[in-house]
Simulated scan of single mutants.
Amino acid sequence: MWLVSDDDTQIYMLGAMHALPRGTDWERGKVADAIATADELVMELSPDELAGAGAVFQSLAPRTAPLAMEKRLPPQALAGYRALEARGGDFGGDTLDDWAVMVLMGQRVAQSAELDSSDGVETRLTEQFKDARKPIRGLETAREQLMLFETLDPATQRTLLTRAAENSGNAVKDVGALTAAWGRGDVAALEKVINEDVDAVPAARKAIITDRNRRWTAWVHQRLEQPGTVLMAVGAGHLVGPAGVPAMLEAEGLEVRRVQ
Rank of each mutant, 00 (worst) to 15 (best):
A110P: 03
G89Q: 04
Y81S: 02
E122T: 10
D116I: 05
L161D: 04
D116W: 09
A132F: 02
T156A: 15
Y81W: 06
G80Y: 07
L73R: 00
R124W: 09
D116R: 11
A142G: 14
G92M: 10
A113E: 07
R124H: 11
T123G: 11
E150Y: 13
R82S: 11
A100V: 04
A142H: 08
G93P: 09
R72G: 02
T126Y: 07
F91L: 14
G138V: 06
R124C: 10
A83N: 04
E140N: 09
P154V: 06
L78C: 01
A155C: 00
D98C: 04
S118H: 13
T159I: 12
E140S: 12
K134H: 06
T159A: 14
P154K: 08
R124K: 15
W99H: 01
A83V: 02
T151Y: 05
Y81A: 00
E127D: 14
L161R: 04
L148P: 01
S118A: 15
L96F: 06
G138W: 07
V121M: 02
G89D: 03
D153G: 13
A77E: 08
L84C: 03
F149I: 12
L73T: 01
R124I: 10
P154L: 10
P75N: 04
A155Q: 07
P154N: 08
M147N: 15
V121K: 01
Y81C: 02
G106D: 14
V121L: 03
L115R: 00
Q107P: 03
Q157T: 08
F129W: 09
S112V: 05
G120D: 13
L148T: 08
R137L: 04
T151S: 11
R72C: 04
G106R: 12
A113I: 08
E127F: 13
V103L: 14
D119P: 07
T126D: 13
F91A: 05
R163Q: 10
Q76M: 11
D153Y: 08
R143D: 12
M105V: 09
M105E: 05
G89S: 07
P135H: 09
R108M: 11
D119S: 10
Q107K: 06
V109R: 03
D153M: 09
A155G: 02
E144W: 09
W99F: 00
P154F: 12
L104H: 10
V121A: 05
S117Y: 04
L96G: 03
G88T: 06
E140V: 07
R87C: 08
R87F: 08
A100I: 04
G138H: 09
R72A: 02
Q145Y: 03
Q157G: 14
Q157S: 11
R133Y: 13
L96V: 06
A132L: 01
A77S: 13
F91D: 05
D97G: 02
E122D: 15
M105F: 10
L115T: 02
R133C: 12
L73P: 01
